[in-house]
Amino acid sequence: MKDMDPFLELIEEYHDQFYRYVYRMAWDTGKADDIFAEAVLVAYQNREKFQLGTNFRAWMFRILTNKCFVANRETARAFDSLDEKDIEVPARGGNEVYEAAIEDPDAFLGACGDEVYIAIRALSSAQRACLLMRVVEGFSYQEIANVLEMPLGTVMTHLARGRARLRRELAAYATAEGIVNEPIRLIATDDENKDIADHGS
């Protein structure tokens, strides 16, 4: 039993983080419990592969991420073809650009309620993984790149596009629901400037 306890203790220390990540990553939150349990067991079975002194959280997040992708074929497909999905420009009107000015983030989040999670779930798997690891778990870009086994530049792209999409979704919701009463200050991003230029708007 001696060699089990330290590893289990390590998992126990972070298990809420792991569960939270799975819950937000899984397309079907009803499967979160199973994915989490399976990932932890797999980690335990492979504990000899973990080198003490290295980044345990990153090691675990790689297993958790893989399990999330495997558990959801749709998500996995999105992950496989993420470039294609990310390049896709959402339909907009002629002069529509995005980014809501958020004066009071707490109040804004409270007013948006579950819409925030809906907007996060609307991101591609890779964008969601990057955003959750960065914004919620505080991973550095390099750590995220190691977990997802992708180049640092790709992580940056996913984060930038994920953020832009999140802003856009929430701004659209806030405007439609009258949460943002003040005129929304809008800033066009590079992608949109290009898009506008391409269409001669």
Partner: peptide, 14 residues
């Protein structure tokens, strides 16, 4: 605004 928003978002999800 976005930095404040993300800090709030991170805290909410955590």
């Amino acid at each position: 605004a976005e930095r404040r928003f993300e800090a709030s978002l991170g805290e909410t999800i955590r």
